[in-house]
């Protein structure tokens, strides 16, 4: 769910851009360091951005019967680390604005914050916590992908409620309104994306376990199992 061009007031647009900038800057620092150590990663990150863009254009069957588009933030964060996902997400969101008219240029900062910062970091945190308490790999992936999706949408609802508080009930009522309106599509989408990410990782574990081990997603013991 992208906030469209011109929707946010100018102060909020600037504020969210400033909030996202350190994460994108840190992400660029992480990427530069990775490229110095492993020069082949330079191409990998660019290709990963194209992969995320194409993934976001796929029509996904939702559990309510309608079709939605996966965000790919959970999958990307588990595969490429949340730090690297901020610049990759920024490029993908810019391309979506310029090639698909989804999102916008003045709302790029707000969209980066919800989709390329909160989503990937939430996915990584949930995945590590789930693996820390020894939950099965598939369940950990499901939780990471679906909660990342859900938190992305809650953040967007929060951004909109912050910009447009209800005249009577203030931020809380406005937040409840936006959450309620977008929940109809976003909760089934989050569940579908969680299931899809599990199917993806099952296929990867079966046929491409070596690559997952190289990316530190799976341990050698899990690969042998």
């Amino acid at each position: 769910m992208h906030i469209m061009e011109g929707f946010l007031p100018v102060t909020h647009a600037i504020g969210w851009s400033l909030a996202s900038a350190p994460f994108v800057g840190y992400g660029l620092y992480v990427i530069k360091k990775r490229i110095r150590e492993k020069p082949e990663q330079r191409m990998l990150l660019g290709v990963a951005a194209a992969f995320t863009f194409v993934l976001s254009a796929l029509k996904m069957p939702s559990v309510t019967g309608s079709c939605s588009h996966p965000t790919g933030t959970g999958l990307g964060a588990v595969l490429f680390s949340p730090g690297a996902m901020a610049p990759i997400g920024a490029v993908v969101l810019l391309f979506q604005a310029l090639l698909l008219a989804h999102g916008g240029l003045t709302t790029l900062g707000a969209n980066i914050f919800s989709m390329a910062v909160v989503g990937p970091f939430a996915a990584t945190l949930v995945y590590r916590l789930a693996r820390g308490i020894k939950l099965p790999f598939s369940f950990a992936v499901f939780l990471a992908a679906s909660l990342a999706d859900l938190l992305t949408y809650v953040t967007t609802a929060g951004q909109l409620a912050f910009a447009f508080p209800d005249p009577v009930g203030g931020f809380a009522v406005s937040f409840a309104k936006f959450c309620g309106v977008f929940a109809v599509t976003q909760i089934p989408l989050a569940i579908s994306e969680g299931l899809l990410t599990v199917v993806v990782f099952n296929a990867l574990t079966r046929y491409n376990a070596r690559e997952l081990q190289d990316m530190n997603v799976l341990t050698g013991q899990e690969v042998r199992a």
Partner: peptide, 28 residues
Amino acid sequence: TTRHALRSMGILTANLTVQVWQRSQALH
């Protein structure tokens, strides 16, 4: 069906994920 669609899309995405590595390696 929805179940088949989810499975097909999962296989498609997994295949694309592997192509990320293969294509980036070839480009490098």
